[in-house]
Design a binder for these strands. Structure first.
Lengths: 192, 192
DNA sequence: CTCCAATCTTGACAGCGTAAAGATGAGCGA
DNA sequence: TCGCTCATCTTTACGCTGTCAAGATTGGAG
């Protein structure tokens, strides 16, 4: 039952955005009374947090699937995880916005959600360290570089789904092209 | 009157976040009936867009003020504009979230807001071109580099105010330190 | 069989965005 | 001066929302 409600909530967010995510709409989709969800989620914020958690799990799954394409090149694995990050955002923009939306942000009271988010960053961090072990990346402060890389792909993802880069960036192909170029620039640096 | 309503709306967002932004609350703050705002804003989305526009103007003002610190170093000016971007987000997190929030994102029907956003990117783009003219940055596809830089500072700003970097990143000083490090990494590149 | 705890339902309330219609009042041609 | 017009503001009302309170159902432990 809880799973049915959660599935319905994710489906609503996917189709109509976070603004359409309503406890009553979820209850209707699950064909129960408008108060039934309260026996599985404390309040609306808890439901939103559960949706976000589902999103983080999906993001992590797609990142892990993608880096399996190149098991032997640590540097490419690190880079591809970032590409997958942007691709996920463009493929599931509404879900991505919920994952980093204001309803979710102040939920410091939700350690499970925070753990899931840290898991994504942890994956990138692990890939970065493996890249450094392969001597393909300078061994500067690993955390600082990880933060920089995360910021780059996160900002790219956000601006893509906000349409700030134009409509061509909202397609997976266009977004991935941008992500390849941006991560390449980060690897190389901007100097001549 | 319209300005009074808008000021009240900005104040509410600043203090209590976008969730507290309500047509009726704005009307109460301006001591008018709950329907008076409709004679100045078509609907709630228009009010939110106006608040976001105000935010973009403030962001641009802070960026322009900051780059005046170093009028002679084009490369530093470009970099400082990015630092100011992150600093603004941390200083006005609720406003920043409205500027890039979902209510604002789908408002492609609001060309004024879009123009204001493009103005911010245009400023960064201009500073980048001036950096290139000074031969301190390689003259690759300027738009691509601009997009990369914008993504980096935007993602850094978002993750800072989401608390993903921990509490120390939510202070202006901490966020600026992160922004210096991240932009430095982008300039230098990550290779050894 | 009984009882209890978990689960679900019904009903109510205030707050929200917004539609419809009435009130107010300043500006202006006669 | 009168009376019209139009922009502005108010009042009232509707359906939607999240949530509280209280009753109904039901399946398993004693």
């Amino acid at each position: 039952m809880r799973q049915a409600l959660l599935d319905a909530a994710v489906e609503i967010v996917r189709r109509d955005g976070a603004g359409a995510l309503t406890l009553r709409a979820v209850a209707r989709a699950a064909r129960v009374s408008h108060m039934a969800p309260y026996h599985h989620f404390a309040d609306k914020a808890a439901l939103v947090a559960a949706v976000a958690r589902e999103g983080f799990r999906g993001l992590r799954r797609e990142m892990e699937a993608r880096i399996e394409r190149c098991p032997d090149d640590p540097r490419a694995r690190f880079r591809e995880s970032g590409i997958a990050y942007v691709a996920f955002a463009v493929k599931h923009p509404n879900l991505f916005r919920v994952m980093f939306g204001p309803e979710t942000a102040d939920t410091d009271a939700n350690p499970e959600l925070q753990a899931e988010a840290r898991g994504v960053f942890g994956l990138m961090q692990r890939l970065l360290k493996q890249s450094q072990a392969g001597y393909a990346i300078r061994e500067d402060d690993a955390r600082q570089i990880g933060l920089t890389a995360w910021s780059l792909v996160h900002g790219l993802a956000m601006l893509c789904i906000d349409g700030q880069f134009g409509p061509e960036a909202t397609s997976p192909a266009g977004a991935e092209r941008l992500a390849y170029a941006a991560t390449g620039a980060l690897f190389r640096g901007l100097r001549r």
